[in-house]
Computed example of a mutant assay.
Amino acid sequence: MTETTDEQKKLLEIKQAEKKTKIKERLFGYTMRELTANDVFKIVDIINILNVAELATDFLKQKDAAKIQTQKAQGLALVAGKKTGAEQESLTEQIKAIQEDISSQSFEYVSKAAKFVLTHSNEIKVELNSLLADLTGKTVEEIGQTNIVTYSLLVKDFFAKPELKEVFELLF
């Protein structure tokens, strides 16, 4: 039974690597620069149009939960350093589970934010396309003509930017 589980894990890793490769291929030619001070005004315009206070509140809750989980993982890591054998392995597995949970929650938030923006895209089309064009060095027309999958990935990448999270913390 363990062999099957190991095989399943390897297949899952291969599928994830293939998915990442496909995403990278989709985004070929689209490099998003770091956010700057001038971008804050465009972001605030989009936030105001969408009235996304709930989304920002969800982000802050997710961030606080992740911080607590990170502290727990750090505590377990300290304890694991003092243990030997099976106890250390058990604690290491718990740490990995916490890290995976944090990653999953972050992905869930980014996906929720991107989905929210895409479902309200008519309201912010001009502002969002302008922002994405500026961030990628493309024209607004090029962004508007982008394949829908690539466009969705660009929106998702925008919401995954660490600077954006920091801006949300400051604004809300």
Rank of each mutant, 00 (worst) to 15 (best):
R33D: 03
I46M: 01
Y30K: 00
Q74K: 12
E18T: 12
N129C: 07
I98Y: 03
E166D: 13
N147D: 08
K15A: 10
A37Q: 14
S103H: 10
F158H: 02
G29D: 00
D6Q: 13
K10Q: 15
A113Q: 00
Q99P: 05
K156G: 04
A86K: 10
V149M: 05
N38K: 13
T139Y: 11
K125H: 12
T36P: 06
R26N: 10
T92F: 00
E123K: 02
A37R: 10
G85W: 13
P162A: 12
Y30N: 02
Y151T: 15
K20L: 10
D101E: 11
E13Y: 07
F158N: 05
Q71H: 09
E7P: 00
Q16W: 03
T5Y: 11
N129M: 12
K24C: 03
Q99S: 10
V110F: 11
E7F: 14
D58T: 04
L12E: 12
E163I: 03
A80K: 02
A114S: 13
L12A: 12
A97V: 15
E169S: 14
S90W: 09
G85E: 14
K63E: 09
E123A: 05
I23H: 07
I23N: 02
K161R: 13
E169C: 10
L128N: 13
E108C: 03
